[in-house]
């Protein structure tokens, strides 16, 4: 495996995937640190894993759906940074020009 390096563009791409906005200095520092850490974890390539299947330690258990008392809408919304009309309020996530004609914008 080639020694890893991360360009600024690659770090910016990872940040976009991870929904993180990084400042200039931060992105450059992360590029260096990620390269070091990835160089270290690359040693896993040397381990012979031919005869093991990747197994999960435990499978999640299934259970019947049972209706139980839960938290009220008001209790759940109480922790939200912004609410409107009994729901979570978010900024625009669809364009006003889409075919659906949705034009509502929030914040």
């Amino acid at each position: 495996m080639k020694p890893p390096s991360f360009t600024r563009a690659e770090v910016d791409h990872l940040a976009t995937l991870a929904a993180l906005t990084l400042g200039d200095g931060e992105a450059d520092a992360m590029a260096k640190e990620l390269a070091k850490i990835v160089a270290y974890v690359q040693e896993l390539a040397s381990v012979d894993t031919a005869d093991v299947e990747a197994e999960r330690p435990l499978a999640a258990a299934w259970r019947e759906d049972v209706l139980l008392p839960g938290l009220s809408r008001d209790e759940l919304l109480a922790a939200a940074p912004r609410t409107a009309e009994g729901g979570f309020s978010v900024p625009a996530f669809v364009s006003t020009t889409t075919a659906t004609g949705v034009s509502r914008r929030g914040q």
Binding site: A15, A19, L20, T21, L76, A79, A80, P81, R82, F88, V90, P91, A92, F93, Q107
Partner: peptide
């Protein structure tokens, strides 16, 4: 992600708000 609980730093578009 700033929607249901915790900090939100406002931005005009949702992906910018997450970031």
């Amino acid at each position: 992600d700033g929607v249901r609980y915790g900090l939100r730093v406002p931005a005009s578009r949702i992906h910018d708000m997450y970031g």
